[in-house]
């Protein structure tokens, strides 16, 4: 028996918004510790890893490990039936072929119940090594979304450079080019870019903006985003989900041929 209660539907809604454009179907792996999901996009250049800790949820129980095969689009549609503030329970029996959703309104005067058919998904689980990155940049998630959106009007790829001066995003296209630079300036001032950079080596890498655009769908989950880079390894983009967990995205760099 698996059952998880969220005080508000909004976290689940935001998690689905942050994953559904990248992944069609995914196994939600539930254990005593919590809920984990790992899935690649259909072209296998990026990977999303979600972790929600059971002990940080309103209530959580999972006696036996269970993999729930979920069509992300269907789950998104069902969650749209919940108000943001609805208490939300998701539940599945050990041998179930459905997941049950219960939405309770704030005043407890309305209860909705939905069942979603589960799928058999043959998923490939990859081991992600603990990695010491050359550069880790913490910045406003809104600012990152804005930069990705702005540079997408110029080109398909972004060159990210991190050095002791700060971080620079650059794009080139047929009609022109653009760069956005943020100085490393940890400051308490309102209105400053307020980024922090943890740097051991300067790095310069290229990535497809199309995937970064998918990643920025997670911005409502967190005010901050962290970008971790090292030469010749995938970029890691992490959004914390309060104290409950995180969503991490990995993207293979574009290599100059």
């Amino acid at each position: 028996m698996f059952e998880a209660t969220f005080n508000q539907a909004s976290i689940l809604k935001q998690v689905l918004e942050a994953t559904k454009d990248l992944v069609n179907d995914a196994n939600w792996d539930c254990s005593a510790e919590g809920i984990a999901l790992q899935a690649m996009d259909s072209s296998h250049v990026s990977l999303v890893s979600l972790s929600l800790r059971g002990d940080e949820l309103a209530s959580y129980r999972c006696e036996n490990q269970i993999s729930l095969g979920i069509n992300m689009n269907t789950m998104t549609k069902i969650l749209k039936c919940a108000e943001n503030n609805d208490r939300t329970i998701i539940r599945a029996d050990d041998d179930a072929d459905v997941m049950v959703f219960v939405f309770e309104s704030e005043g407890r005067d309305k209860t909705s119940k939905y069942e979603m058919k589960l799928m058999d998904i043959d998923s490939e689980h990859l081991g992600i090594p603990e990695q010491e990155y050359s550069a880790t940049v913490q910045m406003s998630s809104k600012e990152f979304s804005r930069i990705v959106r702005d540079l997408s009007t110029i080109g398909e790829n972004v060159e990210i450079t991190v050095d002791k001066e700060g971080i620079t995003f650059g794009a080139k296209g047929e009609s022109g080019s653009g760069t956005v630079s943020l100085k490393s300036n940890p400051s308490v001032d309102e209105g400053s870019s307020n980024i922090t950079i943890d740097l051991t080596d300067s790095v310069k890498l290229n990535f497809a903006l199309r995937y970064l655009t998918f990643f920025t769908k997670a911005a409502p989950l967190s005010d901050n985003v962290s970008l971790s880079l090292s030469a010749d390894v995938p970029l890691m983009v992490e959004y914390a989900i309060g104290d409950v967990g995180f969503i991490r995205y990995y993207l293979a760099p574009k290599i100059d041929d």
């Binding site: 690649m40 296998h44 250049v45 990026s46 990977l47 490939e124 689980h125 990859l126 081991g127 992600i128 090594p129 790829n157 290229n206 497809a208 390894v233 995938p234 990995y250 993207l251 293979a252 760099p253 574009k254 290599i255 100059d256 041929d257």
Partner: peptide, 14 residues
């Protein structure tokens, strides 16, 4: 021209 390797090639099969 840029090449992009599969994300699989960076991570081991678990």
């Amino acid at each position: 021209i840029y090449k992009q390797r599969s994300i699989r090639s960076y991570f081991s099969a678990a």
